[in-house]
């Protein structure tokens, strides 16, 4: 008797699940998940609205785009661990390489879209206190004894790896290719760092809101955001003469889109980033567009020219990652030697 009753309950529960499952399917519309990193929050909020409209106009279908943000490294781990992302738009190629090694993304993704699959780029600049009281002009000034530098930990933050590599490249260039000099330089620089936050947003907060440090190494887009949206008038941007070309790449997560049948949508989503509308939104979100001719001239005027070194000079991300940021790499060495 009891057995019958309980099996009835189970049957009802199964029936209900099936019912609601079916209901969910009936209402299904196009949906896309974009796993991105921290400072792209504002960019993709604007872009997703534009793309939703564009998709409706071209295909007549509704699409819901969900974007998740966080530290680039932990974001890619959520994808590797099973988050069904359709596209990843991360801070650096090495994080996408990790997804490639996990078998989620097919090799060759970096030539799937134009410009190394980077629809926008940025660089590393300095954010200093208003009217630059410590007179910080270039990378040299960061190793002065009286300067406190705020940068996140390159072990946990994609942005911070660009910061580190820009400093390394500066000294390597200045010393004519002397790696020991470059190592000393970054060691001195990190000796001036009083707080190593785990992510770029944390560092911005430490510098802008908590008033710690004299200079923040930041993505250019993050620096503009801090300048114009967080605390107007209290900080200003200093652009060094030399910096690194930071290309945050995008990729389709092949395994997931093939399972879900969303490849076409995912491709359209990333393609649209290169369109005139996409480039315009990119420039207005403080990222440097690959096609400045499509952007508002006043947005483009914000970006000064400077000498930009590329990651290829480090032998690509795979090599840079293990040499500098791997376990026992140069970053670990500078902290165990001083």
């Amino acid at each position: 008797m009891t057995l019958k009753r309980s099996s009835l309950v189970v049957a009802a529960a199964i029936a209900a699940t099936v019912q609601f499952g079916g209901l969910g399917l009936a209402f299904a519309q196009d949906a896309l998940t974009n796993v991105s990193y921290d400072p792209t929050r504002e960019l993709y909020r604007k872009y997703n609205d534009a793309f939703t409209k564009h998709w409706k106009e071209t295909t007549g279908r509704d699409v819901t785009v969900t974007a998740t943000h966080g530290g680039s490294g932990s974001q890619v781990r959520t994808v590797i661990d099973g988050l069904p992302a359709d596209v990843v738009t991360l801070a650096l190629a090495s994080d996408i390489l990790a997804a490639e090694e996990a078998g989620l993304i097919e090799p060759g993704w970096q030539s799937e879209f134009p410009k190394n699959s980077s629809p926008y780029y940025s660089t590393i600049v300095f954010l200093v206190r208003s009217s630059n009281p410590k007179n910080i002009k270039d990378w040299d000034d960061l190793i002065r004894d009286d300067v406190e530098v705020i940068t996140p930990n390159p072990k946990t933050s994609g942005g911070a790896r660009w910061n580190y590599l820009a400093a390394w490249a500066y000294e390597l260039d200045r010393s004519g290719g002397d790696e020991n000099a470059a190592k000393d330089f970054v060691a001195k620089l990190y000796a001036n760092v009083p707080v190593l936050d785990s992510g770029a947003r944390g560092s911005t907060n430490t510098f802008v809101k908590n008033g710690t440090g004299d200079v923040l190494l930041a993505w250019e887009n993050e620096a503009f955001l801090a300048l114009e949206e967080l605390e107007p008038g209290s900080v200003e941007i200093v652009v060094p003469k030399f910096s690194i070309l930071a290309e945050p790449p995008v990729a389709i997560v092949d395994k997931n889109v093939d399972e879900k049948g969303t490849r076409e949508l995912a491709k359209a989503y990333l393609d649209y980033l290169y369109s005139p509308e996409g480039q315009k939104i990119i420039a207005s979100s403080y990222y440097r567009p690959q096609h400045p001719e499509h952007a508002d001239p006043e947005d483009v005027a914000r970006f000064p020219d400077l000498k930009l070194i590329t990651i290829d000079e480090f032998g690509g991300w795979k090599e840079a990652q293990s040499k500098h940021f791997g376990d026992g790499g140069i970053f670990d060495q500078i902290y165990s030697s001083n």
Binding site: S74, N153, K155, T156, V195, D197, S198, S336
Partner: peptide
């Protein structure tokens, strides 16, 4: 989060996960 000064154990775990 400075190594050997203000770095907690759970952070070291996060570093390993990042690698």
């Amino acid at each position: 989060n400075l190594p050997r000064q203000t770095e907690i154990l759970p952070l070291l775990i996060v570093f390993r996960l990042e690698e």
